[in-house]
Each structure stands twice: as C-alpha cells, then as structure tokens.
Amino acid sequence: MKKNNNYENQLALIQEDNINVSTTNEGKDFLILLSGIVCIVLIFLFSFSFLASLYIDRMPVETQLKIESLFSVKQHIKTDNKYSKKILQLNHLKEVIIKNDKNLQNKSKFDINILTNKEINAMISPDGSIIFTSGIIEKNLTEQELAFVLAHELGHYAHRDHLKTISKQVGIIALCLITGQSSHMQSIVQGISETEFLSHSRKQEKEADLYASRMLVKIYGTNNGGKNFIKRLKDNEKTPEFFSYFSTHPSWEERYKLLEAQ
C-alpha cells in the first residue's frame, strides 16, 4: 500500500515539471513588446514632426496663406454689438503688437471676434482669426493684461504652431491607418500619440507665453500685465496641479513661474 502511495507522489513531482506548458512569462513578454511599440511610435512621431517643422519654418508665406485659407472659421462667428468698444481696443492693441514683430506683418488680417461663452478662453484659428470668449472680456482685464492674452495668441501664429499641430495630427492619423487592422494595437498607438501630443502642446503654450512676455516688455517695458493675469487665474484655480499632465496647457503655477523667471 505504501508503495502505491509513492507512485502517486512520484506523478505529482513529474507534473510539477510539465514540459507541455510554455515557461515564458507573459508579463515580461508584454513589457518587451510594449517598449518596442512605444519606441517605434515615438521615433516615427518625432522624426515626422521634426521634418514637418523643418519644412514649416522655411515655408514661403504664399503657401502658408494658401493652407490657412482652407481652415477659415470667419463666417461661423457673430460678435454681439455690445462688445464693439472692446473690439476697437483689441484692434488697437493688435496693431501695436504687429508693428513690433516682422513675422506678423503682411500675413493674415487677424480679425478679432468675441464668442458668447462663459469660459475664460481665447484662441487663434489656423486662418489667423482671433476669438475671445465673452467670459474673458467680462473679467475687465487691464490694457496690459489684454495685450498679454492677444500677444500669446499671436505668438502661436508667429511660431506657426497651427501648421505644426496640423502636421502632427496628419502623422497620428497615418500611424492609426497603418495599425488600423488591430484595434488593440491602435488603442496603444493612440494613447502614446495623444500623450506625446499633449506634451508638445504644453511646450508650444510655454513658448507663446514667453513670446507674449517679451512683447509686453517691448511695448510697456514690463511683463507685469502677463504676471497679473496668470496670477488672477492661478488664485481661482481649484483643480490639482498634476491635472495639467492631461491638459494641452501647463498649470497656471508653472506659467506664473515661467513669467517670473523672465
């Protein structure tokens, strides 16, 4: 009987060392695979956007204007008459800024529109139209603060950020098309591209802030208008700072420190 039990024990020992099961660790396998994909995607995106930036920075003005005309948004926005005085003030500030930067001269007309929206925001469309929300206008910003916001948006245009963003999105779409056969592969590629896109966008925002700050110094001799504006928004900010990693903009705190260092 004792001998019989040994037989079962021996079998248990043999089974421990099962040659039919693969000994590869799936987790390790996945990490190697994932790091390979991340490297390929990042190399593709970096080289694509590097080459695109190289071309965009040297692009002739005529080509730039042709591309921009494809993205016109002018007909979609109607400004309320009650903001006509503000529009006049903004147009005056715009002329002053354009006078101080050759990169902005003889390009778009930079039409200024005010969109009825409670959010505090301003943006520039690819065709050079500048849109302020009614939320930011009703904040009663000082002239220097308004000039900072306007110069920030014009900074994006001067750096040709709109064209660089379009080229980046073309790169992401191309990658998604290549990997479209596998939905899982596509979700990883999208995730990596989006993360890289956000980080690139935050970099562009910082450069636009620095441009606006330099412009204020040129016009008023100080960048206090920019610092005051950002401080105002920083003090009202309730979301934690780490949320900026999910955003296209750096945190207000970071932007304030950037201007202070100037």
Partner: peptide
C-alpha cells in the same frame, strides 16, 4: 483580456503566441 491583448499585438508583428500556449494546454 490581457492574453487577448498581447496576442493581438503579437499578431501584428508575428512570432509565438505564448499567451495562448498555456490556454491550449
């Protein structure tokens, strides 16, 4: 979900589908 995900990625590049080997066993 994990095994299917890894196998789907491997499908793209080719090679052994190790996650499914233990399942088949």
């Amino acid at each position: 979900y994990f095994k299917n995900f890894v196998a789907s990625l491997k499908n793209f590049f080719g090679g052994r589908l190790t996650p499914f080997e233990s399942i088949m066993d």
